[in-house]
Design a binder for these strands. Structure first.
Length: 243
DNA sequence: AATGTTGACAACCGCTATGTT
DNA sequence: AAACATAGCGGTTGTCAACAT
């Protein structure tokens, strides 16, 4: 990518880092025109930026309700937990962390937490292997029955880049997912998407997007952030198989 | 001191979903 | 219903500074 020099004076759309003057100008016009019609804001302000770029700058940096400091331990913990559940659903995670943006969380995850998560996962796998080696082989199978077979037998490509397939084992009539904290989430994501798609009442999704976590919670209730233990699968075992 | 590597962050891109005309 | 505009999302890349060799 070739960033144009910030001081360049021409009529082409500028890219690259914003300068203070641009920020002030953008903030002023957003105050006047509101947080919408970004193309109009870009034009009206005279900034040689795309509407998209203006929106991003405002959302990720200029919004007055943003926190700019370091992540706290609590926030870090929250990100780990939510990523464990939802995978790379950064905007969804960001909604639970007031003042933080999806971009910020995404970057923070990649630079601070991903490595740690991978190490934890590796340790866990190692432990499970050791346990498996020292005990009798467990009855392990994938659910193949009727309407769920296509989902349950579908391996997925990890969206968080870890590339691993979810290991699923089933005991009696309930799935037990190996508790790999950081490869679980993409499957959760797809499964919840699939469930949403299967729902005869698609309004649920619409409402979820428009109103944030409240409706989402009523549909796919997760326990409160701290100390939750069973999460999604507790509900799944109770409700999904009675679909 | 020069060069290479890594981490952190900002910004861009492509794509999809949603809203409007 | 279709076309277009706008907003939003997630992945990727560029820049810069700090650190290592």
């Amino acid at each position: 990518m070739v960033y144009r020099n910030a001081s360049m004076q021409d009529d082409t759309i500028r890219k690259g880092p914003w300068v203070e003057e641009e920020d002030e100008r953008l903030a002023m016009f957003v105050t006047i025109m509101g947080e919408r019609r970004w193309d109009s804001i870009a034009k009206a302000s005279g900034l040689k930026r795309s509407g998209k770029s203006c929106r991003l700058r405002w959302m990720n940096y200029l919004r007055p309700d943003l926190k700019h400091g370091q992540m706290t331990i609590e926030e870090e913990h929250m990100i780990l937990q939510l990523h464990e559940r939802w995978g790379n659903k950064w905007s969804r995670i960001a909604r639970r962390l007031p003042g933080r943006t999806d971009n910020e969380i995404k970057n923070y995850w990649r630079t601070h937490l991903r490595k740690r998560a991978q190490e934890q996962e590796q340790e866990k796998v190692q432990r499970e292997i050791e346990i498996a080696m020292s005990s009798k082989p467990e009855k392990t199978m994938l659910r193949q029955d009727s309407d769920l077979s296509s989902q349950s037998t579908t391996s997925y490509e990890s969206s968080n880049g870890s590339g691993g397939d979810k290991n699923m084992t089933m005991s009696e009539d309930v799935f037990i997912f190996s508790d790999y904290p950081f490869t679980m989430s993409p499957y959760e994501t797809r499964l919840s998407d699939w469930i949403s798609g299967s729902s005869s009442n698609n309004q649920t999704d619409t409402l979820k997007d428009q109103h944030g976590s409240s409706v989402e919670d009523s549909w796919f209730r997760y326990p409160a952030a701290a100390g939750e233990a069973d999460g999604i699968w507790g509900n799944c075992s109770a409700t999904l198989w009675n679909w």
